[in-house]
Nucleic acid binder design. Structure first.
Length: 657
RNA sequence: GCGCCCGUAGCUCAGUAGGAUAGAGCAGCGGUUUCCUAAACCGCAGGUCGUGCGUUCAAAUCGCGCCGGGCGCGCCA
């Protein structure tokens, strides 16, 4: 059975995967088997063999069984089919089985209950499937999708007027995880940081900067600004910006001070408004200061992104779309998509109503001539579709904006911008972060919690835990302070990220330090620990990287690795490893990182049982050599898989804990 | 008032296009260290899936009503 496309396509794969951080699938023709898909294909063949063309329309999907008594997979198609054929479900099941050719994969299928067909995978087939996983691939032989798309992930979206707060955690972390997963699957992904860099508050901030701020090296610049949008300029290559700089230590406080000043002094407020006007009319001095301010604020954001390990962001502010706004409005007016209503230019997508039951507008030009967020969002959509050639645009944004995105997407369908091309737009609504007492996440004084403070605390808490361990003679591992710092950094950040990803993204959830940093349960530390144990085994078995290479190289040609699956723990391990392909399918369909966290937790648990002194098997001192090498292979695959899975979530691993 | 989301074990949450006796983790109780990291493992206990009808061979899952919570509903993002 051909598991990879022809060699002509393989060059494409390699190119597409460039820049994802993963090795291209090239040398090996092996891949990881999708057990569920295999059975489903055989079932489909059987249905066609039995019913002819009609068999094609029957649902041949199989699902994993909940109870091991029912085997590994089950098909429920006989029950539905029985109704159509006016036969008994169990008879239908028997007919299906009679046409099934599956004895190389499974034990003889069994009919149970109301007409379920149960499949149990043969150990031999599990072993064969494991041995097919290529040894050198950090992708574990998982091939890219055959229909790669250009995907824009709209994520993070900070507002440069203020510092990033806990509310940005979900859209940033989940957006990055989704981007990583789609990249891994072979799509071209653009992580788009839709930054709030434009609007009335910037007038106030810039005026405050001029009057009270710590402006350094302010030099009147030569030249002129050609276009709004500091983000359009190539960083570090701008003579205007290099001539002015500013340092704001506490951006949040700066905003609060400016706002107080604004409320207290009407003349300052007046100067602020003039500043806004200046900005909008392209006044050079105002614009330079605005850029300087945005640069400084963006530096604060990137400190956070660095801490979180979020890379390859396209920082593109709202200002980027400024010049497009009047063009878009005119176009939509000309096309008759937008109409004037109560002095404003509006689009009225079908199916949306106001409080009074009137059609609800998407306002693309205010009655005063200004533009709001809806216009920017539309312009951004157009840019992503027509300039970036996006096939799929994913917004990871709070669920409060659900209706706005529904209207936006409805409006998009009226514009004709996709020109018949299929462009999928999807809003992944994120839930709110609540305090552990269920209240909105605020400081005791009612202020917002800075993201930076939160992440710092996570690292600090991890560090004090590690230091506590070192004091305990039973647990002390003799780490140096540098090692402790490094581990605390990884564990702290991993804990916060994992806790985010663990929850279903749409629902509100409670933030609980003790829970997320706990070593017990579905947490990052538990999983990092499982990974560290794998690494420890491989070290103890003296399978250094070089040794693994030699060990694997012996098996590349005719001499296959033989996997021996006898002990229940070995069999469980094998099934769990192969299940990964099914998890990826689900991820592709549902874009829910919690599907992956759940799997990784199951994998870790299965490994802990496999390796346990009571319930598991010996590995390093196992005899004979064939068993030892088979078990080492299971460990090695688990390690690679944990590393891969955590990597897809944006979480780093530790070789020791 | 209308629209959308949610209500599952004491707590936090899963439950994959309706499938068999509803699952995890935490907390609780009880076990396991001559042995590769006990930061672990095993076992026990714990639920009329908010509620009432309905759809069907089959409902936590689909439909309708009700109760309770959240969010949104014309120039803020």
């Amino acid at each position: 059975m051909p598991l990879l496309p022809s060699s002509a396509l393989r060059g494409n794969f390699a190119r597409r995967l460039c820049g994802t951080g993963f090795q291209p699938v090239a040398r090996h023709l092996e891949t990881m088997t999708n057990l569920r898909k295999r059975i489903s294909e055989r079932l489909s063949d059987a249905l066609i063999a039995w019913l002819g063309e009609e068999g094609r329309s029957v649902d041949s999907r199989v699902q994993t069984s909940q109870d091991p008594r029912f085997g590994d997979y089950q098909s429920n198609c006989a029950m539905g089919l029985a109704k159509k054929l006016h036969q008994k479900p169990r008879d239908v099941a028997a007919d299906i089985i009679a046409h099934l050719k599956i004895d190389d994969l499974c034990e003889p299928p069994e009919i149970a209950g109301a007409g379920f067909i149960n499949f149990k995978i043969k150990n031999d087939f599990l072993a064969k499937s494991l041995s097919e996983i290529p040894a050198q691939s950090d992708r574990l032989g998982i091939v890219a999708v055959s229909n790669p798309q250009v995907v824009v992930v709209d994520m993070s979206s900070p507002n440069l007027a203020k510092e990033m707060h806990v509310g940005h955690l979900r859209p940033t972390i989940i957006g990055d995880a989704i981007a990583r997963i789609l990249e891994f699957q072979g799509h071209t992904v653009h992580r788009l940081n839709h930054i709030g860099d434009w609007g009335t508050q910037f007038g106030m901030l810039i005026q405050y900067l001029i009057e009270k701020g710590n402006l350094l090296h302010w030099v009147h610049a030569k030249g002129k600004i050609e276009k709004h949008g500091f983000l359009m300029k190539s960083p570090g290559n701008d003579s205007l910006l290099s001539s002015a700089s500013v340092k704001i230590d506490d951006l949040e406080q700066f905003y609060i001070n400016a706002k107080e000043h604004f409320d207290k002094y009407p003349d300052f407020a007046e100067r602020s408004r003039k500043c806004v006007v200046g900005l909008q009319s392209g006044d050079r001095h105002n614009l330079i200061l605005w850029e300087v301010f945005c640069r400084e604020s963006l530096c604060h954001c990137h400190e956070i992104y660095e801490l979180l390990g979020v890379k390859n962001l396209i920082d593109r502010g709202e200002s980027f779309y400024n010049d497009m706004l009047p063009v878009v409005v005119k176009e939509l007016k000309d096309k008759g998509v937008a109409v004037e209503s109560e002095g404003a230019i509006c689009i009225f997508p079908e199916g949306f109503k106001t409080r009074e039951g009137n059609p609800l507008p998407l306002i693309i030009q205010k009655s005063d001539g200004g533009y709001g967020y809806a216009t920017t969002d539309l312009a951004a959509l157009k840019h992503r579709i027509t300039e970036m050639n996006a096939d799929r645009i994913i917004y990871v944004v709070g669920n409060q904006q659900k209706q706005h995105f529904e209207m936006l997407f409805a409006a998009l369908r009226m514009t004709g911008w996709t020109q018949g091309r299929s462009v999928e737009t999807v809003h992944l609504p994120t839930g709110m972060l609540l305090r552990d007492d269920g209240a909105p996440f605020k400081t005791r004084e009612g202020g917002t919690v800075k993201l930076k403070d939160l992440l710092t605390e996570a690292v600090e808490r991890s560090k004090s835990f590690l230091l506590e361990n070192e004091k305990n003679s039973d647990k002390a591992r003799g780490y140096t302070p540098e090692q402790i710092d490094h581990m605390a950094q990884i564990i702290g950040i991993a804990s916060v990220k994992y806790f985010e990803l663990l929850h279903n993204l749409g629902t509100d959830y409670r933030f609980d330090w003790n829970e997320m940093l706990s070593l017990d349960g579905n947490t990052a530390p538990y999983m990092l620990y499982a990974y560290a144990r794998v690494q420890s085994i491989l070290r103890k078995a003296e399978l250094s990287e070089l040794r693994i290479t030699n060990y694997e190289l012996r098996t590349t040609n005719d001499e296959r690795r033989t996997t021996i699956l006898e002990h229940p723990a070995e069999i469980a391990m094998a099934k769990m490893i192969l299940k990964f392909t099914e998890v990826l399918e689900l991820l592709e369909r549902e874009l829910r990182p919690s599907v992956l966290t759940e799997y990784l937790f199951d994998l870790s648990k299965t490994f802990s049982t496999f390796y346990d002194r009571k319930t598991g098997v010996r590995v390093i001192d196992a005899q004979p050599d064939s068993v030892r090498s088979s078990r080492l292979q299971l460990c090695e695959l688990t390690g690679r898989l944990l590393h891969l899975g955590l990597n897809l979530l944006g979480i780093s691993t530790l070789d020791r804990m």
